[in-house]
Design a protein around this nucleic acid. Structure first.
Lengths: 229, 229
DNA sequence: CAAAAAATATGACATTTATCAGCTTTTTTA
DNA sequence: TAAAAAAGCTGATAAATGTCATATTTTTTG
């Protein structure tokens, strides 16, 4: 089993605030796992009781609406933590996490992390900061969902994906493979509508599509569309 | 000026976790204020640098979308804290807060609160918990905005308002007066659409309207509508 | 590899929602 | 209190989006 204190991934999230001694202890109680594409990390109703640290891969975090459609609430990637909320809540999860591609993850039990949360101020403040950022982002998503058209939201989402999974090289596709259904589930629309708009963007040469590969050709124009022009 | 350590409102939020000594210190540096209906507490772009504790009244927290329409992100009422994010972020506010009715508020400067955040674990954990709850609620709103129809969202919103501002007595209206524009801005639709649906709900005897007063007559049926039936 | 299943794509149409115009009622202001 | 302004309401219509049907392509499976 790999050691947390030697793992580069910890530097990407709040775990980087832990001391060497704390990391050694965490290392001793954590479990590591490989998760295949399509497999479920946890579901709505599960007791999580710990935090996932994503070493590699991407998963989608979803919530089922009462209409019976799944909404992707966020994408979690290498370096991110998942399940922080379980640390300060006794409730079961209201979210489901599914691997988008093959993943490598670690799981740290709640009791161990909570210990540090109560003793290491830097760590706590870092978690607080992460939550604050998440809250701000959530507010932005709410406003977009409420006020923007599906077309604007698709443009927005493509730009967002480009920022996170795009390369400087315009000839390379986004480093994430989403189904059309996933894309629709991010922007909150019917799969057919997402497909239609993607086709329209392709026709306007804003993007290029090759199977599930997406090339962002004209981010500037996409930005204009996202802003309502 | 009133004293925090004697203020009942503190028991409604994380400030209740502070010790008597801490509260006395906070009391010495806080400022109190009355805010008239319609007045602005802070705007997008403002440096807040502190936390508001709402002693009385309600305010709407909004964000302007790039389309030029304001979206109400949440309503903040007596007992709530406002601006917690400023404690762990140097950024300017991305939100605007406007009084919905006459308010009485206290403002506690950031430096003072951050001191306690770093020394009083109970307080920090309480703030963490509040943020975790907010995050969960935000996820729910995102899913509703993305997946539900305007009609469903209106029903949902009425029930939500009923839970927070309703009385046990069905003959009494909700204890909050929102304009039709505000209601539209909560559910993310055009004012005319909100008015039309309110009229339809009234015709079906689910609610009763008398000016800005709203009476919830049939919460059960509203629940059904909110869930998509 | 062939058959079956799943995902993608597109058209036709129905439904939802926004927009604009005009009117009435309520609230504010001088 | 009268006039002006704002808010509320309703109808007509346009635009956006969802749904259903069906064809095609891609992926999975035996």
């Amino acid at each position: 089993m790999n050691k947390c204190e030697q793992c580069i991934v910890r530097k990407l999230n709040s775990l980087g605030e832990l001391t060497k001694d704390e990391l050694v202890r965490i290392s001793g109680c954590k479990s590591s796992d490989f998760v295949k594409k399509g497999e479920i990390l946890f579901e709505e109703g599960d007791h999580i009781n710990g935090v996932f640290c994503i070493k590699d891969g991407v998963c989608k975090v979803t919530k089922m609406s009462s209409n019976g459609r799944e909404q992707i609430v966020k994408l979690v990637k290498k370096g991110d933590l998942l399940g922080e909320r379980s640390l300060v809540s006794e409730e079961v999860s209201n979210l489901k996490a599914t691997a988008i591609n093959d993943m490598e993850i670690c799981f740290i039990p709640k009791e161990e992390i909570v210990r540090d949360l109560k003793s290491n101020t830097n760590f706590t403040m870092s978690i607080l900061k992460e939550m604050a950022v998440s809250l701000k982002e959530a507010d932005n998503v709410i406003v977009d969902m409420a006020q923007k058209t599906v077309k604007q939201r698709l443009a927005e989402t493509l730009l967002h994906l480009n920022k996170t999974y795009g390369s400087e090289d315009l000839d390379k596709p986004l480093d994430i493979q989403l189904s059309r259904e996933d894309i629709a589930s991010i922007i909150g629309t019917a799969t057919e509508s997402a497909i239609r708009l993607l086709s329209a963007f392709k026709k306007e040469k804003l993007i290029h599509l090759k199977g599930k590969e997406i090339y962002i050709l004209n981010p500037k124009k996409l930005q204009h569309i996202a802003e309502g022009f």
